[in-house]
Amino acid sequence: MSTDKQSRDEIRARIKPTLDKVAVKGLRAWLKAIGLSSSAYTRPTITNLVADEIAEKRLAEDALERALIGFEEASDMRIYLYKLDELPKVDTRKWLPNRLLNTGFALTKIRTFAGEKTKPMSPVYAELEGELLRVKWAEEHESLKIDDKTGAVVKEPVPRRIVLIADLASKTAELRMNPPETRHAYEDASGRTPSELYYQAYLDKVSDLLECTLLPIEWRPVVRQLVEEEEPRVVRIHIDNHTNQSNTKAKTHSSRADVRDDPDWKLAYKKNGESWAWDAQSFYWLPKVSNGFLTRELYSHIDAETGYVKVNADCSDEEVNYVVSQIRAR
């Protein structure tokens, strides 16, 4: 076996476990983002392509790992946005490091994969640069499904990731959370595990960690502004599911259409738009107006009533950062 072939095989073996953690759609989006768009559409062909790029020194393995950690911390997330109220009026560097250490975090400058963390609220890492804080937890939930053939309940462990990003200078924060599975550690008095308890447990954890009050942003004006914005449109609306007084919904059928171009939608909006509650809306963020931040249309769903935006199961950290920045700008 030639040295070159051996090197590629060794690289392929090293990177495969890392690539296997990311959905193929996400890997293809990442390849396009770094200028490696190709005919690699399956996991094996993507793995071979990335191994070749590393072997030819066109891609660094640590850059690959950083990008894929970003996917772990951005994909399939509910994202809650807050203003931080009543933060301690002292230098962050004097109190926060000790607080993080006391809650089980090791301060680091290198982000890491979560790994096999099964216990609730298992600390992964904490990164503090000036007044920008990034904290990552992990835990394991249990999925329950019925086997179609046997009717038996099939139990499957599912990793969950939770990431806090707080800018203490601007007093803003976002909390990214994988949705809970059927069973998790957060029970009510009767032993049930409603999803609300899981979300609330982390909100309480963040509030306690930062010794402040979390004030959620108002989402309804954001939804309305995104729907009404023209020239340029920053989003495409494929399915319109506004909640309005007559419970009217409209749907497009073309794969790239925008429901706002439909004459019936325009008429309904002109007649009833002021009565719409703006409680929920799905969007596709458009790359052509993103100044290069997006390389593809990116799906998200805003639930203004509960107060979060949900993103794809294959998002990069950069894509989520773009969506959050656009929401905060409105």
Results as ranks from 00 to 15, higher is better:
D52G: 07
V323L: 15
E139Q: 12
N48R: 09
T193M: 08
R12C: 11
N244Q: 04
R160F: 07
A329K: 13
T18P: 05
D258L: 10
K271I: 04
A114K: 08
A138E: 09
T306H: 07
V154A: 08
E131N: 14
E56P: 01
V223A: 05
S38H: 09
L81V: 02
K251G: 02
Y202K: 07
T108I: 05
L294N: 02
D240T: 00
Y198V: 07
P157I: 14
E297Q: 10
L164W: 02
P263R: 00
K205R: 14
A63G: 02
I54F: 02
R28P: 02
E131C: 06
H184P: 02
T182D: 09
N312C: 10
S254M: 08
L203F: 14
K32P: 04
V259F: 00
L19D: 09
E129G: 01
A33Q: 15
W95M: 06
D314L: 05
S300G: 02
Y284P: 01
S2M: 07
G273V: 08
L87P: 01
L84F: 01
V22Y: 06
R161D: 02
Y198P: 10
L132K: 14
A169V: 00
Q6A: 14
E61N: 06
Q281T: 04
V206S: 05
K310N: 12
L59V: 00
L226D: 00
S300D: 02
Q281R: 12
V223P: 06
E139G: 04
F283Q: 00
S275A: 03
R260L: 04
G26R: 11
V24N: 14
F283Y: 12
N241E: 07
D208C: 06
I165S: 08
T118L: 11
R224Y: 06
E53T: 05
D317Q: 15
V259N: 01
D204Q: 13
T172I: 05
E274T: 05
Y41F: 09
N321D: 15
